[in-house]
Design a protein around this nucleic acid. Sequence first.
RNA 1: GGGUCCGUAGUGUAGCGGUUUAUCACGUCUCCCUGUCACGGAGAAGAUCGCCGGUUCGAAUCCGGUCGGACCCG
Length: 364
Amino acid sequence: MPDATRGFVRSIDNGILEKEIDLEAILINTYHLFLNPGMEIIKKAGGAHKFMNWSRPLLSDSGGYQIFSLIHKNSRLGKITEDEVIFKSPTDGTKHILTPEKAIQIQFDLGVDMMVCLDDPSPNDYPKEKIAQAVSRTIRWANRCKKEYEKQIKVRKISEKNRPLIFGVIQGGQYLDLRKHCTQELVKIGFDGYGFGARHIDSKGNFMEEVVRETASFIPKNALRFALGVGTPEDIVKCFSYGWDMFDCVIPTREGRHGRLFLRKEKNVIASEAKQSRNISTNSFANIQDDKSFYETININNGKYKDDFSRVDEHCDCVLCKNHTKAYLHHLFASKEMLGMRLSAIHNLKFYADLLGALRNSVN
RNA sequence: GGGUCCGUAGUGUAGCGGUUUAUCACGUCUCCCUGUCACGGAGAAGAUCGCCGGUUCGAAUCCGGUCGGACCCG
């Protein structure tokens, strides 16, 4: 899922997302849509699907991550208490309050197909004691979210068949025992799916392999496993091999807009990597030695592409690669033409979508 | 023919009552982005200040000449 945080995948229209990239779902953000355009407008429009004219599945993130990272960055921007999160809008400074109950209500108003509990994603480098506090708050809030969820189902008279799915988010930083405890408590409450919360990389940017792998194993087999915010292609391959099967990330679109393109090294290399990952998931995973063996990145801003008239990606048939050269894309970026960002984001999304497709095929 | 102004990195400029590794912007080059306030963030290279000479401990800065450009009056 690309992140359509504010109700749009920046610069890309639904036609491309559905027909060219064939995305299964996209992610929107409770926090951003709540602030802008505001729930009155969304409700008037008839919900997020109608407002955006997106008919495929929509998943909304609770907004916890955004608010918490805001507050962790600058404590003057908000306050976390047992009951609620108080925060100031970064754009106009107005004060807002979000509670677990309210986060769920908003997501019902958005009319999404999948929703996420409000959680407490503390930074991974916090001391264990603080992470443990975040875990217990996450559990208590998950309880309140589930109760509110059931209440809304009743009040809105939503049938079992039509109810949105709800995800709990597992916290615990780098500590396996905390992750395990958090998962067990969330499972007791009962959710359709479970998310890997906070960040899956440590403060140095290294993939937290053991925690990500083991946490997946704590989750019941029939539940969905959502690796929030993952990640680089190699992180996704790893997570997939551990059993995580849902992903969202800003990387393909944001890096695309900033001029970084993901390129296939060989035509079928993603598929072969996927096969490798399936084997890995059954026994050992030590085989992934060269993380980036199946792709490379280029920065199209680099001067060496000024007169490079080759295809951007030899093995890709997206609108960018079918129609334009590296030199032309370089020129678009040098000219600060938004078409360059748009085409690059489309290409990267296609790369990610193909990667996920190949991973899925390898298991089916 | 007479007069005025101006020549500082690729471009536009600051500094011209002599205290400095010569300023800033854009451009160029490289890196970063992981539940998106993000066409965003970080960093690097690049001018011996048109040229020649003079004054001085010391000149982009003062003086003379010279070349180039702009404008004004005949």
